[in-house]
Nucleic acid binder design. Sequence first.
DNA 1: AATTCTTGCTTCATCGATTGAGCAAGCTTG
DNA 2: CAAGCTTGCTCAATCGATGAAGCAAGAATT
Lengths: 341, 341
Amino acid sequence: MNQVKQAKRTTIYDLAELAGTSASAVSAVLNGNWKKRRISVQLAEKIMRIAEEQGYALNMQASLLRREKSHIIGMIVPKYDNRYFGSIVETFEDMARARGLFPIITCTRRDPQLEVEAARTMLSYQVECLIATGATDPDRITEMCAAAGVRSLNLDLPGALAPSVISDNFAGARELTRRILKNSEQRLGKMEPLLFIGGRGSDHNTAERIRGFRKAHADLDVAVHEENILACGYAPEKAEKALDERALGGNALPKGMFVNSTISLEGVMRWIRRSGHLDDRSLVLGCFDWDPFVTLLGNGIEMVRQDVPGMLTKVFELIESGANKPVVIQVPPLIPEAQEA
Amino acid sequence: MNQVKQAKRTTIYDLAELAGTSASAVSAVLNGNWKKRRISVQLAEKIMRIAEEQGYALNMQASLLRREKSHIIGMIVPKYDNRYFGSIVETFEDMARARGLFPIITCTRRDPQLEVEAARTMLSYQVECLIATGATDPDRITEMCAAAGVRSLNLDLPGALAPSVISDNFAGARELTRRILKNSEQRLGKMEPLLFIGGRGSDHNTAERIRGFRKAHADLDVAVHEENILACGYAPEKAEKALDERALGGNALPKGMFVNSTISLEGVMRWIRRSGHLDDRSLVLGCFDWDPFVTLLGNGIEMVRQDVPGMLTKVFELIESGANKPVVIQVPPLIPEAQEA
DNA sequence: AATTCTTGCTTCATCGATTGAGCAAGCTTG
DNA sequence: CAAGCTTGCTCAATCGATGAAGCAAGAATT
């Protein structure tokens, strides 16, 4: 870096002066369409050399103000504390960049107020499209975007006003339930109804998973007990508390459980350890979501892994197709080979 | 949303026309300094009402172009696939917002090329400050920022040209090693030297942790064998492979291991299961980094949890103090109470 | 030699928000 | 009632990049 400390940043006007040419020529050269604008190779090379020497960096604000498209794509995401959302964000950034878009992501902590503020801020930054991932009120966000003439899409949780890409929660839950029931039969010698724990009864995914859970029981002629469906929220503490309360409730706890997220599984595992069930093989678990350490817990826990690349591929297809109708696209989750127990 | 579908977004000029006033008054009202500009309460209220009705959203590009400060703060981060970086990102967003800054974050997958590109892009977006987290070449980023007159800071891994905030890796590793050795003595009846696995020998953190690892052995008069220091990289597969190779190497594998990240621990656990060591208590493990599921693995694995809020508090203190000297601030990690084995 | 074409630039308006300067009308003060 | 102050606005330049339109000089065509 062989220049003096500069208070102001270098602009195309500075470069123009240094090169003895006009700002317009500099702009044309630096944004690559200098052939179209008939700038000579000599001048182009000179400008590029000087830009390099000066460590010039485009002022995106000025550029975006002038251009019609921002090429910015926004995503809001509830949390970064599990593999599912982490993978969504990482894959999203990758795929966006591969398409020449600039991804901006913000985490809203499942807070409806923050979601709205984040969406407004993203609109201020002229996003061309906003992906609302796991939003508590996706339709509110779609409305805000629509008012600004910006596209929006829902991911993970569906909305009624914009296209949505979600896992096939029903099919995934049905298969996961079937596997837990089978494992339960194999390990315990009989097939007993399972406990469902975690998630919010009000959210679409949990509702669908409960439906799949019921269906799998029905498929095998096992009756589901209402008291064994505990949509107590996602936090580990909530799962732990719900199990404590359920355990007090007279009837014995089921030996098999369908846990609705890795986050809830943390609470379930803590409860299991605390209540002394850890080492015996009498508990048969399954989890809707994937984490590498869960495999290593060694309890033969079945997992459903949501197909993040598949979902995001659909998201970008929707964006590119320009579709705006509020369809719901369901992507089948991946169910790894059964775990050795 | 009671307006017609609009192709163009509403600007202050549109609002000015609707309110029968000037764009300048609208701007003053909407950015809150209308009292200073002596706009009457009536007009202010009228403008705010109309802005609301029209679903007006500021064009940040135009606003930033004019203003001197962008209030944007950037962060680059290597991965989103573990609790440590997830927590850094979430905490960073929170603390930035609490200070009226707009955080933008991008993931560079430990790819030096991507890091440089990401930094250049962030400079284009006029970030006021860039935090390079776990960067492979932090000094390169500092140089780029300096050339644009932008501040930069290093987090997690130190650099030589900008202030750095990192964990006290030496002290953390020393204490972790001490605990593993103690557990090892308690469980196996004797104190044997440990194996160190994971990380890159070339990175500062791994080097410091190895130093702490050695120091703890020396403190207890235990000799460290060179062949038991395997800085094989972070990926799970690399740890697994390194253990395979080490196992072939004649001498018996140590029963105690210091694992240099949760990511490496995945590989170690897989290797342990594969080689049939899982259920016996002869293996004594510790991990530099924290994940809730590791507690639940039930092998009594000790963990060091890096103090993310503490580190980010230091980061923002540095930013606010305006300090630019390349100091290295070491934040002591948190070592949870010993695990029940 | 006059006309047209091509090459290689420059000029200037523009994007939307911000803000110093200015101005008109009403109100005070001596 | 003239001079000065206050109130409540508007005007116009500006931030940096972009690209349509234009222009001068040389080459090619008639």
